[in-house]
Design a protein around this nucleic acid. Structure first.
Length: 508
DNA sequence: CTAGGGTTAG
């Protein structure tokens, strides 16, 4: 009895240390507890594994799991379905599809029955790696094996559809449940509002918000943050700030998502005082500042011309930084006249083997263009392996500034052929230049091509918005692939693994 | 334990 109580106490302590991201302390607590003769159970280990996955990545979690295998044996603790679900979720977070599938196979082989959360996590993994068809297949196979979907299953599907551009499938699923009188949690509404906003379907997003209110839910911080962000990205700036003020008035607790959304919008529209005040509030509120919060603060510093402060903020804090951090700092350097330093940083990034950061490159190219150093801009341009709309826009404007309208015109044609859209302002600058330099025929030609491309794009958006995945036929369990787990035939499941892992290389 | 919102460039 005493022992059980101690284990629970240990688990609670470890869980709270994990929550505050004090993983070293959590692990030490486990080590100390074992020395003192307390016995951790599977919950203790699961808590640590999922915290490792979340904060340090899958590799760290898996090494921990591996290093702990002796301890697990000594404590007579065997991994359970939660252990594997957590590991699979960790692999999913790092987009390691094959690792997820491998873990799933290992789980079945160990004789642990998957549950509905295994299904949710595997589906999520397929959606996140851009394979909605396979996600649907997982779903069907799990239902076939007798598991019933839970709310998270529906949410994972709806969200996965939205993320992969099949908002219509998501909506259809939502209305199907709605019609059957299934009450869906607020998360479902938030997912749909976000999906509709991001695909530019603002009218429907608005209706979904009304639908949420009809359902009896009260919009939460996430709902408001989603809608606020949607306003900013669609240019309804005042409406966005109104939501911000309403949230404050109604006493919603701001988290770092809400703060960062508002702060970034303030910065973008040049409301310096508000940006500063809001940042001050965020810091004073005592919420834990994560990487995105630091990126946002660094961006504020840079936009105030204090990019050296931004750099020391990031380096003081030590560890975490990502491609946003580099882009923010490099842009800061460019805009305060340290282009050479920015170029140095680009080289450093490449040397460090970081994944290509086109935003950072775009910042430098744009700076060179604005300075009129077209040659330097081309040099950076040629070092990029993925060019995008912003890259071309900067160059087009740069070329126009240098009176090289025919090359600018060629770039626009190249973009049209490649399906890369550039803003109207870039098109206009080139057309104007061609006209002024007397190239009437070229101007007319370009104009009609731009018009045609615009028409085709609108058409494409319309088509895409109504696109739906057709569901595959139900897969019949095939006895040959049957994987008998504790008397349960996981036929559909094993076929998923075999299909994805290829033939022969893995035995179940 | 596992699902939803936030940060960069023209």
């Amino acid at each position: 009895m005493v022992c059980r109580f101690s284990t629970r106490l240990l688990n609670i302590s470890i869980a709270s240390l994990c929550k505050t991201q004090e993983l070293n302390k959590a692990e030490n607590a486990l080590i100390d507890a074992r020395k003192l003769g307390y016995s951790p159970d599977i919950v203790t280990y699961n808590t640590l594994i999922s915290a490792y996955c979340r904060f340090l990545g899958f590799d760290a979690a898996y090494s921990f799991f591996y290093e702990m295998s002796d301890a697990l044996r000594q404590d007579r603790v065997t991994p359970d379905v939660v252990t594997f679900n957590s590991l699979i979720a960790g692999a999913t977070r790092d987009r390691l599809l094959l690792v997820s599938l491998f873990l799933f196979a290992k789980m079945l082989r160990t004789g642990i029955l998957p549950d509905i959360w295994t299904c949710n996590t595997l589906m999520n993994c397929y959606f996140k790696t851009g394979q909605p068809q396979e996600a649907i297949r997982v779903h069907q196979n799990f239902l076939l094996d007798g598991l019933s979907p839970c709310a998270a299953t529906i949410n994972t599907m709806i969200n996965g559809f939205c993320e992969n551009g099949y908002v219509s499938n998501a909506l259809r699923m939502f209305w199907n449940y709605q019609r059957r009188g299934v009450s869906l949690p607020i998360i479902t509404y938030n997912i749909l509002i976000n999906g509709l906003c991001k695909s530019g379907r603002l009218y429907e997003a608005r209706n979904m918000l009304k639908e949420l209110e009809k359902s009896g839910h009260k919009p939460n911080v996430i709902t408001y943050t989603t809608v606020m962000k949607c306003c900013f990205r669609s240019g309804k700036i005042d409406q966005g700030f109104k939501i911000f003020r309403d949230m404050k008035r109604d006493g919603y607790t701001f988290d770092s998502y809400a703060y960062c959304t508002a702060i970034s919008a303030f910065i973008k529209v040049g409301m310096k005082k508000e940006a500063n005040d809001c940042t001050g509030q965020m810091i004073k509120s005592g919420i834990r500042l994560d990487m995105v919060s630091y990126n946002t603060i660094a961006n504020l510093y840079c936009k105030q011309g204090k990019c050296l402060d931004a750099m020391s903020l990031i380096s003081e804090k030590g560890s975490e930084s990502d491609e946003y951090t580099s882009a923010i700092l490099i842009d800061g350097l460019c805009k305060t006249g340290y282009v050479d330093k920015a170029v140095e940083q680009l080289k450093q990034m490449k040397a460090d083997g970081q994944k290509t950061n086109s935003v950072a490159y775009n910042c430098v190219i744009d700076r060179f263009c604005k300075e009129g150093s077209l040659e330097s801009a081309w040099k950076v341009f040629n070092e990029m392996d993925v060019k995008d709309s912003v890259t071309y826009t900067s160059l087009i404007h740069g070329l126009c500034k240098n009176q090289n309208f025919s090359l600018a015109s060629k770039l626009i044609l190249y973009c049209i052929n490649d399906g890369v859209g550039v803003p109207r302002s870039a098109n206009r600058a080139v057309l104007r230049g061609l006209r002024a330099s007397g190239a009437k025929r070229e101007e007319k030609d370009l104009k009609s091509k731009i018009r045609m491309a615009r028409y085709l794009r609108r058409f494409e958006i319309k088509r895409k918005n109504s696109e739906r995945i057709t569901l595959p036929h139900r897969v019949k369990p095939s006895p040959g692939l049957s994987c008998n787990v504790a008397g349960n035939h996981c036929a559909g499941l094993s076929s998923i693994i075999l299909r994805s892992l290829g033939t022969g290389s893995y035995t179940l």
